[in-house]
Nucleic acid binder design. Structure first.
Length: 944
RNA sequence: GGCCGAGUGGCGGAAUUGGCAGACGCUCAGGAUUUAAAAUCCUGUGUCCGUUAGGACGUGCGGGUUCGAGUCCCGCCUCGGCUACCA
């Protein structure tokens, strides 16, 4: 019986595509190009997750569709294979990381091929390939060789860095040091996030609530000399160039918020005592605002210079260099104790108690530059050393945090902004300093500025401060420089050498490895486990690797490795020219294929990966290696796929039901709120549940509330769906189709096994529409005919072509599939199914379910793949209807329908509506006061 | 706490510029076919009233604009995601 047999068909066509290299992409685009990119997966040991095929199917549909529309499509796939999990796994299973990584890659490749994606597999790459990371190292050397010219807003070769005379005068070592300080890749003693359990430092972005994102281990802040990338130099461009790309507003906003640009002013508060204040101010008036704060002033950053008159105290971070200088002898013990305590506090502890503010008075005062008022200087850990100047002027009347702090320590609160009368604000309380108001308003208690509104005040005070030399406009970013080194084995080695003196000590001179000597491969190590100390595992390499000698000079290799993000910052460029051994990408090919026209992936990469990749791209652009400012022209984030809907309720020890709304989670389990008795979670099947109002309840007792929702798939919850099993049971085409039919690509949606079954049912019907599944051998359904189609058949076909084309263009795959289902529902009812119509339909289906489509295409008479057949064209003239049905409303409610000529005039339509039998009846005893006629749409009578 | 997104049948979801709410699929029920089952096919499936004909209500809640609101405006509620002292 020739039933639809996906496993047989799918294997057959996957082999065909591979043998015929159907999807091999030409070196250079022929005709219009389209570069469609998936976020390449991390090849974990668990294999593919159903979230992967969601985005991959979406891009594959687009690629197959556009190929048929004649575009030259680049659609590659690879692996982001360096990183912590692979190394952790390798340690656990005692295998070399490369071995287990390669095994995982093989498994991923098998799974991806099993899904029938039209990748050009000859372009596949892994970030762990030595030939790949050779170029990752090369790009790092580009960063090392670049400084950022703030005037031109551009990265330039380090050789073009202007060296100040006084540096030149101090000799070659000073010049080299000056250069090192300005490179985009530089070494810095930074307070880093050290994670002892992982044995590495982590980027800020990898630390969540003071714990590691991977593994959830505690993270400590310690000072360590680390490689940093000067991404902050590019903050402005990373922000403003978002205007030019086609990304969702949500993702753009996430990136903007992460960059966190704010504008305001830096202001110096004099700390040399009241007597000298006037003379200090006078000298500042002459000399202007210095680039670096002088010793006699404390510099703050504020976004609200208009509230300067309300500054009743100042706060410096515990790590601020001026702490010691400012602290008076009487306060020394207290301040010292506070600062020590703050340094031991983990980030977690510091963020945990954001509600209660702590701090200590230094004993010192500063003079407010606008009026000479004396303000006390405090130390408090709610001010961060890493942002702004590490010091603030505190305006408790108009800043929530300062308000809390001032309330806690009984510091004056002086209102300087009058909110006026507005909803939700108690004006009297604000003016009395009893409530905080951070909005805009009118200045009060601000000397000559009284009565000015906030925006204008900002501008005036900025000018005044500039003139007086006590302040200047400033811009700050939440974005910090990127901590780029890791103390782990499984990453790209840095192509950097540290010069040694005769005793074998580092001289402080560093150099890049010559291009000719790239790649720097990882050394063989018997033991690469982390040991809880910041010394990287590569330090245990043989001397041959560790101590190269060049031109008689002995060097020690950099032993840190790059973070996992490195490889994913530029992989989209390598796909364009993956075999090139002279160059990371051929310039001609780069120009022809870039930018990426469509990039689809999960929103979890919305900030980090995309920001890092854009940063590298911009550096490569500045240095003339790529021709586009932005790498990814259009970005779409697929939604998360949740597990199957779960119904849960609770039971106490006596097996009595406890509603989901009555239960709370305690430290050691679940308990009933009312009496504190312990309860247990019970999973229910659908038939045990019914609906009452908006809530689910137990079918046997509708007083017991049942919780019904879907959860994120996770091993611990046991709701993970394995793509292998779906393909085994239903076929790859069903999996692809189901994931696209679930709902809009960007929406979060729950998995449903019966939904998969439903989609399989559709493919079965497609098969039977064309194939006689009751025959002994494979033959066409007897309804399939060579006759030319009648008008209705053509109408259904062209309606389908139109809708599927439009929906596919817009990535509205769920509705495109619905339209194809309608087509099949129509034609399975027809006893005559013209072959020409079915062929067109098979082409429409092919991007979605390519295997069955190829098979049916062949059975309908073709001898080669349909992958490059022209996409069906909708003939609009066929769709023109001569008569249409028009609803007739009374006061907006549909009361009747009439059938009229499609091109009926407005007046005739109204008359036809009035003539309708039912309308005459309904309108007979009421007065029509107005008639709305929308030709082609409706007629609406407004009656009294 | 802040920001973003979303609330439409039993479930997933459809609905040009405001213009016939519930396309398509699942589920469930009934029927046909079958010795029986599976598979398949047909019919029905928002709620309420009504035997039928038909009618009323209905897109989280409360208001508003409009001839007409799922869609626009104002005020709330709930859920999900991200973020968290960034001055």
């Amino acid at each position: 019986m020739p039933r639809y047999n996906p496993s047989q068909i799918e294997a057959k066509w996957q082999n065909y595509w591979e043998e015929n290299q159907t999807f091999k992409t030409p070196e250079m685009p022929q005709g219009e190009k389209l570069y469609v990119l998936d976020m390449f997966p991390y090849p974990s040991g668990n294999g593919l997750h159903v979230g992967h095929p969601e985005g991959y199917t979406a891009t594959d549909i687009t690629c197959r569709f556009e190929r048929m529309r004649g575009k030259s499509v680049l659609h590659p796939m690879g692996y982001d294979a360096f990183g912590l999990p692979a190394e952790e796994h390798a340690i656990k299973t005692n295998t070399p990381p490369r071995e287990s990584t390669e095994k995982n890659i093989a498994n991923f490749t098998r799974q991806l091929k099993m899904l029938g994606f039209s990748y050009d597999w000859s372009r596949s790459l892994a970030t762990t390939d030595v030939e790949y990371f050779k170029w990752t190292q090369w790009i790092f050397l580009q960063l090392f060789d670049t400084w950022f010219d703030a005037d031109q807003q551009k990265g330039r070769p380090i050789s073009e860095l202007p060296i100040p005379e006084d540096v030149t005068a101090r000799g070659g070592v000073a010049v080299a040091q000056y250069r090192d300080e300005h490179r985009l890749a530089y070494l810095d003693d930074a307070l880093v996030n050290w994670c002892a359990d992982l044995g590495t430092v982590l980027a800020n972005e990898e630390v969540i609530d003071g714990r590691s994102e991977r593994g959830n281990y505690p993270v400590q802040r310690i000072p360590l000399r680390q490689w940093m990338l000067r991404i902050t130099s590019y903050a402005d461009r990373l922000e403003s160039d978002l205007d030019d790309v086609n990304w969702s507003d949500g993702i753009k906003k996430l990136q903007r918020d992460w960059i966190g640009r704010s504008t305001g002013a830096e202001v110096d508060f004099f700390i040399g005592g009241t007597e000298q204040f006037e003379s200090w101010k006078a000298s500042r008036g002459n000399e202007g605002f210095p680039d670096k704060p002088s010793d006699d002033a404390l510099r703050v950053y504020t976004t609200r210079p208009d509230t300067l008159y309300g500054a009743t105290y100042m706060v410096i971070a515990p790590e601020h260099p001026a702490v010691e200088q400012l602290t008076t002898p009487e306060q020394a013990d207290q301040v010292k104790a506070y600062c020590e305590k703050a340094s031991f506090k983990s980030d977690r502890e510091r963020t945990e108690d954001t509600k209660s503010k702590t701090g200590v008075f230094t004993g010192a005062y500063a003079s407010n530059p606008v009026n000479g008022a004396q303000v006390p200087i405090w130390v408090a850990d709610y001010v961060l050393i890493s942002y702004g100047t590490g010091a603030i002027m505190a305006v408790p009347a108009h800043d929530e945090r300062d308000f809390e702090f001032a309330t806690e320590f009984g510091i004056d609160i002086i209102a300087v902004v009058d909110p006026g009368e507005r909803k939700g604000i108690d004006r009297e309380a604000v003016l009395a300093g009893k409530q905080c108001f951070h909005g805009l308003g009118t200045a009060i208690n601000s000397g000559d500025y009284d009565g000015t509104d906030t925006a204008e005040f900002k501008e005036l005070i900025r000018k005044a401060l500039h003139q007086q030399g006590t302040g200047a406009s400033a811009v700050n970013y939440k974005l910090r420089d990127w901590l780029f080194s890791r103390q782990r084995f499984w990453g790209e080695p840095f192509p950097i050498l540290h010069e040694l003196d005769d005793e074998g000590n580092a001289t402080g001179v560093i150099r890049g490895v010559d291009h000719a000597d790239l790649p720097v491969d990882l050394p063989h190590l018997e033991d690469y486990k982390p040991h809880g100390r910041p010394e990287p595992p590569l330090a245990k390499a043989d001397d041959d690797w560790l101590y190269p000698v060049i031109d008689g000079k002995r060097y020690r290799r950099e032993t840190n490795t790059m973070p996992q993000w490195a490889g994913s910052c530029w992989y989209y460029l390598r796909y364009i020219d993956p075999e090139n051994s002279d160059c990371f990408v051929d310039p001609e090919k780069e120009q022809a294929w870039m930018p990426v026209d469509l990039y689809i992936g999960g929103a979890e990469h919305a900030v980090l990966h995309l920001l890092y990749a854009r940063f590298w791209h911009k550096v490569l652009y500045d240095r003339g290696h790529v021709t586009t400012k932005e790498p990814f022209q259009r970005l779409v984030n697929q939604g998360m796929i949740l597990g199957e809907m779960e119904f849960t309720v609770y039971q106490n020890a006596d097996n009595q039901w406890v509603g989901a709304n009555e239960v709370s989670r305690g430290d050691d389990g679940l308990y009933r709120q009312q009496d504190g008795t312990e309860v247990q979670l019970v999973k229910l099947t659908e038939d045990q549940v019914s609906k009452k109002g908006d809530t689910f309840v137990l079918a046997e007792d509708d007083a017991i509330r049942v919780d019904g929702r879907s959860f994120k798939m996770s091993k611990s919850r046991g709701n993970v769906i394995n793509p292998d099993e779906i393909v085994d049971g239903y076929g790859a085409d069903s999996l692809r189709l189901y994931e696209m039919f679930m709902g809009p690509l960007t929406a979060t949606k729950p998995w449903s096994m019966s939904g998969v079954n439903g989609v399989k049912g559709f493919l079965d019907r497609v098969w039977r529409m064309i194939i006689n599944d009751r025959a002994e051998s494979l033959e066409l359904n007897e309804a399939v005919s060579d006759d030319s189609p009648d008008d209705d058949a053509l109408k259904v076909l062209h309606k389908t072509i139109k809708a599927v084309t439009k929906d596919t263009e817009n990535l509205d795959f769920n509705t495109a599939i619905a339209r194809m289902m309608e087509f099949v529902n129509y034609f399975t009812k027809q006893s005559v199914r013209p072959k020409s119509v079915l062929q067109q339909f098979v082409l429409l289906l092919s991007p979605y379910a390519p295997h069955i489509a190829e098979e049916l295409w062949e059975l309908l008479g073709a001898t080669t793949t349909l992958a490059y057949e022209p996409w069906p064209i909708c003939d609009e003239s066929i769709l023109v209807e001569s008569t249409i049905e028009i609803p007739i409303q009374i006061k907006g409610k549909v009361k009747s329908r009439i059938s009229v000529a499609a091109d009926i005039s407005k007046d005739d339509l109204e008359q036809a509506a009035r003539n309708d039998e039912k309308m005459q009846q309904l309108l007979s005893d009421s007065e029509v006061i107005k008639v709305i006629v929308v030709p082609g749409r409706l007629v609406n009578f407004v009656t009294k």
